[in-house]
Design a protein around this nucleic acid. Structure first.
Lengths: 156, 156
DNA sequence: GCACACTATATCGTGTCACGATATACTTTG
DNA sequence: CAAAGTATATCGTGACACGATATAGTGTGC
């Protein structure tokens, strides 16, 4: 065995596929961050605006909602909102139903920036989305090959 | 005009679609980070291992390669390698062709952890990959609707 | 074979941000 | 209204990415 140079690591194809997928992911995320920077926002600020603007119809976008959506702890969300509010991107408003809650509302300025950013993202995804999908599908194709070696150890 | 409660923001469908896509993305990224933590690694350490293990055949994985792949500056990559090396996940080796370069090599321990993580990621993507793709395609569908309002301002 | 520009890696001080622990404000329940 | 539960806020800490800078190796012209 040990055909030629290869056969070094039977998991290599999987690692390569996953690495390529992450590469595509990062490419998009980097483009997104750059777009945010160019608009004068921190990436996280953009994400918060998007989360608030994209909140499902019936749901009032609170701090807790933001934390959940962005995968942050409550306190981190509070701080992020502080920063956004400080730059006039959004504002805290009273929640009519529960006065413990804060209802986040995007300012005209924030909305304008977000609209522009969303447009940029649409274009970006339109152009590199297919590659992203392909790299993901390529990972999944790997799974089939995996099955026949489930349980085996790599040769030590 | 102003039909019912809606019509508040003509960009809302786009924002919602993008927000949902980011939500899917974060779901995967969070799952990935958790998997890394459970293996005792920082997410970035996992990414570095994956990048090194998934390097294209001919390419020797240097610091610069790592920085480029992970979207980091050189110095940040150096620090990340320091941390990984400190935990015995990989080691610096001499590059035979260019002695300025460092050739990153995964240790047996690092490889074992990475193999396990890649397997977990494969399962994860197999189960939530389709949703990710769908949310992305849903964003792209939005683009068609966009065309007919290009250039118009939202009603003030 | 040495001065030069160029590239790769390393070090250090700084700033941002997420976090845990904790505090405060409001709601609900009894 | 007391107690328990939930939402938001504050503060100190730590991880990490960065810019600026330093060091080491490579290639070129002469």
């Amino acid at each position: 065995m040990n055909s030629r140079v290869a056969a070094q690591d039977p998991n290599k194809p999987l690692h390569q596929a996953l690495a390529e997928f992450r590469r595509q992911l990062r490419k998009f995320l980097l483009a997104s961050e750059n777009a945010a920077f160019e608009a004068g926002l921190q990436p996280q600020q953009h994400q918060l605006l998007l989360a608030v603007a994209g909140a499902p119809a019936g749901r009032s976008p609170s701090i807790a909602y933001a934390a959940d959506t962005l995968g942050l702890k409550h306190n981190s969300a509070v701080e992020l909102v502080d920063r956004c509010e400080g730059e006039g991107l959004l504002e805290r408003a009273e929640d009519s139903e529960d006065r413990r809650r804060v209802c986040l509302r995007i300012t005209p300025r924030g909305r304008k920036l977000l609209d522009r950013l969303s447009h940029v993202h649409l274009l970006e995804l339109n152009s590199q989305g297919p590659q992203l999908i392909e790299s993901l599908e390529n990972v999944l194709r790997n799974q089939h090959r995996q099955r026949k070696r489930t349980g085996r150890k790599q040769l030590g």
